[in-house]
Design a protein around this nucleic acid. Structure first.
Length: 360
DNA sequence: AACCCGGGGAT
DNA sequence: ATCCCAGGGTT
């Protein structure tokens, strides 16, 4: 019998806790059920930097529209991007589609983490998660939950992200325990559930933890300070001006963003570039999608936070009898446009509609 | 190693 | 206002 790394507790208490307290989640198969690889993969991609609460309804909706990986592979990229609208990190949708086509062509998902890792949109974490949950491979997916749990168990005081490899190596050490190796998928999900409900970022509920006796951070009384994180830079404030051009039929003029980069491939209202300095209306009008119109300033501003900057937008509105989209632009009914656009653009539509939420 | 890439919910 | 989330890709 292999010896566990000295800093880790045995797996059995966690698995016993999981058998009693596991969360029932929309994308999770019932206890004892066989996970469908397509479902596991889809949910793991949706869950990348996205909360369980946000994924639940979107997972069901996505599955209703694309029931199998073959159906997803056969769909057009535009349909996939539209279904993803509002979920963020839109490169995930492109990679998801590309991955589906490879898997469909190949006749199924690779069954081990090393081969899964080569597919688009599947990194070290997702490869291990799918391999463990869908195929029972003895690997430990290391997400933010697992990093936090392991950092506390081992009282690892090195700061993230530099400590990431050390924490991943520690987590992998659990697979030396036969109890964990016998149930890799359950063990992974048990770590997720522990991190989400007990070993939380702030105010962990140590009294309820199945590992409370084996946790070095708790013994030292430093559990709330771990994992340590390197300081992050402040987000600058940027400015943009967008144009809402509508016609008598209720259509709005839209533009598609370049395929790569911020909001890649998504629809937007035409506008100025986003820059550090605020725009004057006169300056912004050079970017208007049509000339000779009477643009009227919509009162208020719309704000949206991105990962690395904050954006403040002004909105100018005008009407034409009938839209004649310039090259590279298109017209859609307002409601359909909102459904297909990222949240930052929906906030501009809310502003135009007098929505109080988007005003400053 | 450092950036870039959304959006939402909890505190 | 800040943190953080079942992270991946690029440079």
């Amino acid at each position: 019998m292999t010896v566990l790394p000295p800093s880790l507790p045995p797996a059995a208490p966690l698995l016993a806790w999981y058998d009693r307290h596991r969360r029932a989640l929309p994308f999770r198969s019932p206890a004892g059920g066989r996970p469908e690889p397509y479902h596991v993969w889809l949910s793991e991609v949706m869950l990348q930097q996205t909360t369980v609460a946000a994924v639940g309804p979107r997972f069901d909706r996505f599955l209703a529209r694309f029931p199998t990986v073959q159906a997803l592979a056969a769909a057009g990229e535009g349909a996939v991007m539209e279904e993803w609208a509002g979920l963020g990190y839109y490169a995930r949708a492109r990679n998801l589609h590309a991955c589906a086509r490879l898997v469909a062509e190949r006749g199924g998902f690779p069954r081990d983490a090393a081969a899964l890792r080569d597919l688009p949109g599947i990194g070290a974490y997702t490869a291990a998660a799918v391999a463990a949950i869908a195929f029972g491979e003895a690997v430990v997916p290391v997400d933010g939950n697992v990093e936090r749990v392991v950092a506390r168990l081992a009282a690892e005081e090195g700061a993230l992200p530099a400590a990431k490899p050390r924490l991943a190596a520690l987590a992998t050490g659990f697979m030396a325990d036969p109890a964990a190796r016998a149930r890799p998928g359950d063990f992974a999900q048990a770590l997720f559930d522990l991190g989400a409900t007990i070993c939380t970022p702030r105010a962990p509920a140590c009294a309820l933890c199945p590992w409370r006796e084996g946790c070095a951070a708790r013994r030292a009384g430093i559990q709330e300070t771990l994992p340590r994180k390197a300081p992050k830079r402040a987000r600058p404030l940027r400015h943009g001006v967008h144009f809402l051009l509508t016609d008598a039929a209720g259509q709005v003029l839209l533009r598609r963003r370049p395929p790569k980069g911020l909001l890649g491939g998504m629809l937007e209202l035409p506008g100025t570039p986003w820059r550090d300095a605020p725009w004057t209306e006169a300056e912004a009008l050079a970017f208007a999608p049509a000339e000779g119109l009477r643009w009227r300033r919509v009162p208020g501003v719309a704000r949206h936070g991105f990962t690395h900057f904050e954006l403040e937008m002004l909105l100018l509105a005008a009407a034409m009898p009938a839209l004649a989209p310039p090259a590279g632009m298109e017209a859609r009914p307002l409601v359909a446009a909102a459904a297909a656009m990222p949240t930052v653009m929906r906030k501009l539509l809310d502003l135009a509609a007098g929505g109080a939420a988007a005003e400053a």
